[in-house]
């Protein structure tokens, strides 16, 4: 079987981006993207689970009967999420507390379930692994951009509290965009996340349209071989 790795990569990052195109996993996406650090941590956690689950499911895909695949997938995903949760408790306890319920909620993240069912259960291990990684990265990127947007608008900073994730060396990563910023509460609140995501999707559509237009302008006009496909319904009465 011929696997198009380039296509898988591009799909995950852009064409079939889980957050911007598939609109999956919106619950954590909208809830935790108030700051960059939250976004990064949730993104990484989701990506790890995604890679792990895709790998496992792809490996065992031939042994799982179709009728019971969903319970099996849930089991696998739940195991990985539990691992991640325990890991975060151990390493970044503060962050774990901030993200709270959204870490366990990764179990129900549609991105992971969706990729498991749509891709990993039908494709070989290497492709699934790449797909999990790319989908995860695509998801994380959107999370981070949205988080940055909201953090900048809402509290006038960027990369605040990064030490929660990266340890003491990240203490002074914080960038203050506007001194003495009063804060724009709307951006921090969930409605701001909705508006922000909407704008991001719009932006992606604009870029896509531009790309397509350019492609059309450059593409040579291919003469279509038309009218060859017609099939006669009726034959001779013999």
């Amino acid at each position: 079987m011929n696997i198009d790795y380039r296509k898988i990569t591009l799909d995950g990052l852009w064409h079939n981006n889980p957050a911007l195109v598939q609109l999956l996993g919106l619950c954590p996406l909208l809830a935790v993207t108030a700051s960059v650090v939250n976004s990064i941590s949730l993104g990484i956690a989701s990506t790890l689970v995604l890679i792990g689950s895709n790998l496992t499911i792809s490996t065992f895909r031939k042994f799982v009967p179709d009728a019971v695949r969903l319970p099996v997938f849930v089991m696998i995903i739940a195991s990985f999420v539990t691992c991640i949760e325990l890991l975060m408790q151990a390493v970044t306890y503060e962050l774990y507390q901030i993200l709270g319920i959204f870490i366990p909620l990764i179990v129900t993240n549609c991105v992971i379930m969706g990729r498991a069912d749509a891709f990993a259960s039908k494709n070989p291990v290497s492709a699934s692994l790449l797909d999990g990684a790319m989908m995860g990265i695509g998801f994380t990127v959107v999370l981070v951009i949205l988080g940055g947007l909201r953090e900048a608008l809402g509290s006038g900073t960027l990369f605040a509290d990064m030490h929660l994730l990266f340890g003491p060396m990240a203490e002074n990563w914080t960038i203050t965009l506007v001194e003495d910023y009063k804060g724009f509460l709307f951006a921090i609140l969930p409605p701001g996340a909705f508006v922000g995501l909407g704008l991001l999707i719009a932006l992606k559509n604009i870029i896509d349209k531009r790309l397509k237009d350019r492609q059309l302008a450059n593409a040579p006009i291919i003469d279509q071989d038309s009218g060859t496909k017609r099939v006669r319904v009726t034959g001779l009465i013999s």
Partner: peptide, 9 residues
């Protein structure tokens, strides 16, 4: 509503 939420002061 938006400004009321965002700028209560």
């Amino acid at each position: 509503a938006l400004v009321l939420i965002s700028f209560p002061v």
